[in-house]
Amino acid sequence: MLMQLTLGGLSQGMIYALIALSLTVVYRSTTVVNFGHGDFVMAGAFLSYVLVVLAGVAFLPAAVLAMIAMFVLGVLFNRGLIRPVRGGPHIGLALMCIAAGYVLRGIARMVWGREVLPMPAVFDMQPIFLGNLVITGDAVFIIGTVLVLLLILFGLLAMTDLGKMIQAVYQSPRGARLIGLNVDRFNDFSWGIGAALGALGGILVAPVSLLHPDLGASFLIKGFAAMTLGGFGSLGGAVLGGVLLGLAEQYAGAYLDSALIEITAYVVIVAVLFIRPQGLFGRKAVVKV
């Protein structure tokens, strides 16, 4: 049972990791937390649904197209709606993100409001039985895809100057501008990547969760919990936090009470912030006065 829970937790955790990672990418380079991210996740899933089921595109190209579309949407969102309110109160940005999420959800509701749609399984594979342990196609597919993606992403960060640029923009946008970085374009790029990664989370989860306009609602808080656990702003921490949260949910649900799955993320947030506010890898979160 422990092994099975671990596997289930890993495959859920990979989705959380992806969502936490996409939130962190945006936060690191723009210091904005996208409070509407759940709906970006949902929008990615619906885009791929439209392409696969309604336009007959194969899954893989559809997923890539949906991610590109969400990249563009992320860039447009930054340019059209985030930039104009940057001069206002900082938390106006949080509300702007929520408002954008509402618009996305509103569109989905308008078109598919009364439906719960099935998304065809991508990776139809007979489950493998190892004794009592069942390994399903979904789990293999989700874990595999996210691992490959993480390798590429962290490889890029390690081998290029991208990581340093992100760090520079995060620490001081003005300083980054001084050394010749185009911060505006950099922010566009981060929003695009964040939206595309979030969309991928949606695309991966949709065959499991089914499609409905409220699909993304629960993912935002899981992303937050994963980020908090790993250390806010740490890319590696976001991934580890996501995986740990996935595992914690399964263990709490099976060994304690299934009613606790719902609040595992919240308990993690409260506990981490009170006990070790910097998370596993983050910098100090508390302010000393």
Binding site: L5, S11, Q12, I15, A217, G253, A254, S258, I261
Partner: peptide, 17 residues
């Protein structure tokens, strides 16, 4: 007696019980 809340995308823990 088990609960599975709205929005949960996985029932592994419940099913294993």
């Amino acid at each position: 007696e088990l609960t599975m809340e709205r929005g949960q995308t996985d029932a592994t823990a419940q099913v294993l019980k």
